[in-house]
Write a protein that binds this DNA or RNA. Structure first.
Lengths: 229, 229
DNA sequence: TGAACCTGTGATAAAGCTGTGATAATGAGG
DNA sequence: CCTCATTATCACAGCTTTATCACAGGTTCA
């Protein structure tokens, strides 16, 4: 299991690295955004721990931007480190695709817990996708959905999150609120947005969007993926 | 078996939810205390997993207070999640009526063990979603009722609550007031509404709605599910 | 017998939910 | 700067769900 630690603060980076190594991780470091992207390509880590507060030496490459770049080209989970307790930061972090955040100061134990939690979650989700719900499969790297016997369709970030989450529980109905919370984060979405998102996803993956066969609706409750796709 | 997970940390809530779902639970989430109380009334879960460290957005509604409110109005078991190892917290947790606590960080296995221990202690059977009574079965996920030898019928939210409650005590008569309180909450329904609801449910599930064989009426008292369906 | 009460039934109106289309805001890339 | 893709917001039709009113038939009991 390989981790990439991105932080300009050498001391903090060393603490994080030490903590992770003790847990059996192989660790690579980077001191700024540019180096991070370079080592990301070279090392292919399994997870990135990223300080949002990077030096301004390289303009326009703060933590959020780096996170965004990472997410554009891969699906490697990212955990953000932030001193600010400003909720905007966290929301923005999720917006650029972060998987979790840890507020500084943090205890080593806390960090390890988050890292393992995220890895477990990602592991779970890829497992689900490999299981292939019915005639559906999804490639999170390319963000492409594949319906049996048709061309692959590329999905947007939100569509991917929705599909991925639905595929975690094929045959089960997920509550509207549950989906909203998971896709947009707490307090970040409403039912209207969810409806539109489901609609767009259906347009892309349903053979006949007018009569959905993959994503089923339970009025007043939520949506789910049909098992007999 | 339905669980309510209350946590403002989306990631943690998702982990807990995933873990429980994998064990066959139906899971609902809430992001703060207010939502928790609302969904508690709506969803009637069998157990609550509650993070004591809730956001201060709603003042005076931290985890302990929420726990207290829950215990005031119902007997649903509550498990507290706490980061603090402070023994006072635990003591205080028990004081407001918690049934057990789990210290963060925890492993999924650990959580499941606690949940099942508490449920066993309370005397609930940890059975799968679909409930059965005689020739009747009900899928709360889809809100579909299945009468032996016929097509599944989809029920509305209220109809589901009624049927679910009746199925909890097959062969017993439940008081009108009891049913009303349980379905609409205290002070929320009247006998007329109940009559209509029973009527609509009968229309859907009774082979011959004019001569009910499943739901029996005891004049002046209430309704019940016949055991010899 | 007749009043009070209860139940089943029907009809109707208000409220809510979903799918749909159109349109603005937002952000990325040339 | 402009253009395109993505996302958010608004409005609306059709349907379902729910609450409310009205009424007939049955039972109980004084």
């Amino acid at each position: 299991m390989k981790a990439l630690v991105v932080d300009d603060d050498r001391v903090l980076a060393d603490i994080v690295s030490f903590t992770l190594r003790r847990e059996g991780f192989q660790v690579v470091q980077a001191g700024d955004g540019e180096a991070a992207l370079k080592r990301l390509a070279e090392e292919q880590p399994d997870i990135v721990i990223l300080d949002v507060n990077l030096p301004k030496a390289v303009p326009a490459l703060d933590g959020f931007t780096v996170c965004q770049r990472i997410r554009e080209k891969s699906n490697i989970p990212v955990i953000l480190l932030t001193v600010r307790e400003d909720e905007d930061d966290i929301v923005y972090g999720f917006k650029v695709g972060a998987d979790d955040y840890v507020l500084k100061p943090f205890s080593p134990r806390q960090l390890v817990a988050r890292v393992q939690a995220v890895l477990r979650r990602v592991g779970a989700s890829t497992e689900a996708h490999s299981k292939q719900a019915g005639s559906l499969s999804f490639d999170p790297d390319r963000r492409e959905a594949l319906v049996e016997g048709r061309e692959p369709v590329s999905l947007t970030a939100l569509e991917s999150r929705l599909l991925e989450y639905l595929m975690l529980y094929p045959g089960h109905i997920l509550t509207n609120q549950d989906l909203i919370d998971h896709i947009w984060g707490p307090g970040g979405g409403d039912r209207d947005m969810l409806r539109q998102l489901v609609r767009r996803l259906r347009m892309k993956i349903e053979p006949d969007p007018a009569q959905p066969s993959l994503i089923e609706t339970v009025a007043g409750r939520g949506y789910g993926l049909r098992k007999t796709g």
